[in-house]
């Protein structure tokens, strides 16, 4: 699979949501409250990309398309990209950079607290997404660190739940999708354990996935 053919168009597609909202603001097509629409849109797309990123491994395992893993870094960085924009819209459009007010808000309102924790936890993942960081950390430690994305996913869905007023159908949908993606991983782990208990133990080839990611 020639990734050079897939990556540039995928990159552009990933910018699509941002382009849509930029167009919407320009064309006055986002309804009566465009600022809220942009703020929520950026949050929704951060969460969408998080689920897409978490879907890479299951998709790879089921399809056998191992090259999918080499798109994961870009998808993961788009989680951070949209989350940072989401944070930016909050800091600017909601709080107008009133730092005292922002500090109070983070401490006082659980859904803001949780959202902020998500962005903070995403920073080290974005920072260590390059090959140098992977080599420096070593595959096992790098993978351990990046497993925090599961926690981030849970917190992001919680952030959504606590934000809505009464209709929880959308956060519930995200919870179900995230549950399925995380559930798969638990299931794999249990299967692995059962295999080990049955005596078919062979050490997991450490860093196999990583080496694929580094290979250019």
């Amino acid at each position: 699979m020639n990734l050079a053919l897939i990556k540039p168009p995928l990159f552009l597609i990933c910018l699509g949501p941002l382009a849509y909202y930029a167009w919407g603001v320009q064309a006055d097509a986002l309804g009566a409250n465009p600022i809220e629409a942009v703020t929520r849109g950026m949050g929704t797309w951060a969460l969408n990309f998080l689920l897409i990123t978490l879907a890479v491994t299951p998709l790879r395992k089921f399809s056998g398309w191992n090259w999918l893993i080499r798109l994961r870094r870009m998808l993961g960085l788009f989680v951070f990209f949209y989350a940072a924009l989401h944070l930016g819209t909050y800091l600017w459009f909601d709080q107008f950079f009133d730092w005292a007010e922002i500090a109070k808000d983070i401490l006082k309102r659980p859904f803001i607290t949780v959202g902020m924790i998500c962005v903070v936890l995403l920073v080290p993942l974005a920072a260590t997404s390059n090959s140098i960081a992977i080599r420096k950390l070593g595959g096992r430690r790098w993978q351990g660190l990046h497993r925090s994305v599961y926690l981030i996913g849970l917190l992001a869905v919680l952030h959504y739940f606590w934000m809505v007023k009464a209709d929880i159908s959308k956060p519930l949908l995200y919870a179900v999708l995230l549950g399925a993606l995380l559930g798969l991983r638990i299931w794999w782990r249990l299967q692995e354990r059962n295999r080990q208990l049955a005596g078919a133990y062979s050490p997991k080839p450490l860093g196999r996935i990583i080496s694929l990611a580094i290979k250019k």
């Binding site: 009566a32 600022i35 909601d94 934000m163």
Partner: peptide
């Protein structure tokens, strides 16, 4: 008196940018 989950100190008038 804030809503338990968000502040009520300011509001956005529909059609305006600042609060």
């Amino acid at each position: 008196v804030d809503h338990p989950r968000w502040s009520q100190a300011r509001e956005r008038r529909i059609g305006e940018f600042s609060k």
